[in-house]
Design a protein around this nucleic acid. Structure first.
Length: 424
RNA sequence: GUGGCUGUAGCUCAAAGGCAGAGCACCUGACUGUGGAUCAGGUGGUUGUGGGUUCGACCCCCAUCAGCCACCCCA
């Protein structure tokens, strides 16, 4: 074997076992989304760079997007997130759509980053958005949707949680501390960094931003105040709604949740492993001006994104991934010799039409090799159609799991297999 | 973009500057129309790639690529 051409850095090959997980995730996400009345949609995987100029995080577009000129010289981007596309799609049909709009999507995204645990350059994301509704209860619905997903896959409140905050609340509290609005962006960044830095370095950082010691003390007091959310009428309504949704046991207030994307304006939240392991499983929040930013009328919304990489790691950690059944078929119809090859193919088709998953061997090789193939592939039943059986319109049916073999009338094979599959 | 660790058979790993190995897997046979178990035998490598040092390099040095991990950022 020569040197295999390497895959593109940060991409993943979905061998059948991994593909089964991805397909399962897609199915579960679709079911959960539909249960809240969300409709599936998707946008193009290629977008013009201009689309992201409006509101995505600076770094997300400038440094993490795959951008290349097409043959006409236009700058094209492999989508690094879906929300701007969603905003465009809504803006294009703004007057025709029925609001509040509930849409979900699951598709690939690309970001040019250094791959590491929980992060690849090509990944899949579940996006869900509620557009044209503007209430704390609407924000709570999206969180309830996340929780519904957690419950559906078996993740418990002791394993994962959703941490929420309100940017409006933080803004007003910063103003109370005498920190003017122009400084909020950098102070938000400071807040976001607190978990990751040691206390002294963090305080030095705060003072270097020009915060007064009094303001720093006030800020620390705010961030450590677990009941701070009670000062926010909005968050109080969010929590009340979450209680109604039966989702509140997964949800925690955390004043340090800020989120990086700049278009978030009110409620922000992220899902994490309760063991504080790894990066966020999902992130989302409320936005006011997204549709207007791409040329539409102002329309508020709330949404989130959940990446497949991190959630799969978490599910694996807790043993919640579906068990993989490698068997490609229920039955293998073997070929006795070259003369009986077509007869075997006929039998395979009869069984197929009876509703079984059937592989018919397509080469007249030694029988032991064919049975060995069935065994290695995990196929439970083998049909052996040799001259001795066929003269009496029978075949031998072998159960490779129990090792038993019986003679069965050709017309009864499908029925017999199905009956045996049913009992075990 | 910054830093750390790691690249040896299909897989998991040895070989501490001196003949590149083991287990598992795979292939063949014992088996006349039958998988697994056992036994016997066998295939398999420019040691990621390219340079350098040395009488001699899997081992030391440089570069590069890839994987993993952390930072950054974020799903």
């Amino acid at each position: 074997m020569g040197t295999v051409i390497a895959a593109v850095k940060g991409t993943r090959d979905f061998y059948p076992e991994a593909m089964a997980v991805r397909a399962w995730l897609y199915r579960v996400i679709g079911e959960v989304s539909a249960s809240f009345g969300y409709q599936e949609y998707d946008g193009p995987f290629l977008e013009r760079l201009d689309l992201y100029a409006a509101k995505s995080g600076e770094e997300l577009v400038k440094e993490q997007a795959f951008v290349f000129p097409d043959r006409g010289g236009e700058l094209i981007t492999l989508r690094p997130e879906l929300t701007p596309t969603l905003a465009r799609m809504v803006a294009q049909r703004q007057k025709q759509l029925v609001y509040p709009l509930r849409w979900w999507s699951f598709g690939p995204f690309w970001r040019y980053e250094r791959p590491q645990k929980g992060r690849t350059r090509e990944f899949f994301q579940w996006n869900a958005d509620l557009i044209g509704a503007n209430s704390p209860e609407s924000d709570a619905e999206l969180i309830a949707l996340c929780v519904a997903f957690f419950r559906r896959v078996g993740l418990t409140p002791s394993q994962v949680g959703i941490f929420i905050n309100d940017r409006h609340l933080m803004e007003s509290l910063l103003l109370d501390l005498g920190i003017v609005a122009e400084r909020h962006r950098e102070v938000f960044r400071l807040i976001d960094r607190r978990e990751k830095m040691n206390p002294e370095a963090w305080e030095d950082y705060a003072l270097s931003l020009g915060l007064q010691p009094v303001q720093l003390d006030g800020l620390k007091r705010l961030l450590d105040d677990k009941s701070l959310w009670q000062h926010s009428p909005s968050l109080r309504r969010v929590f009340a709604a979450l209680k109604a949704y039966g989702a509140v046991d997964y949800v925690h207030f955390d004043a340090q949740i800020i989120r990086g994307l700049e278009y978030y304006t009110g409620t922000v939240f992220e899902g994490r492993d309760m063991g504080k392991e790894g990066r966020a499983i999902l992130g989302g929040g409320h936005y006011d001006n997204l549709v207007a930013d791409v040329g539409g009328e102002p329309l508020p919304g709330v949404g989130f994104a959940m990446g497949d990489v991190m959630v799969t790691l978490v599910l694996e950690k807790y043993g919640l991934l579906p068990t993989w059944n490698p068997a490609p078929a229920d039955v293998l119809v073997t070929v006795f010799d070259a003369e009986h090859l077509l007869k075997s193919l006929e039998i395979s088709q009869i069984l197929r039409e009876a509703g079984l998953r059937v592989i018919g061997y397509t080469e007249a090789i030694k029988l032991d090799k064919q049975l060995r193939y069935a065994h290695r592939a995990g196929i439970r039943y083998a049909v052996i159609a040799g001259p001795d059986e066929l003269v009496r319109d029978q075949v031998a049916l072998k159960d490779l799991q129990t090792g038993t073999q019986t003679l069965v009338a050709l017309s009864e094979v499908a029925f017999t297999v199905k009956a045996q599959m049913g009992v075990s």
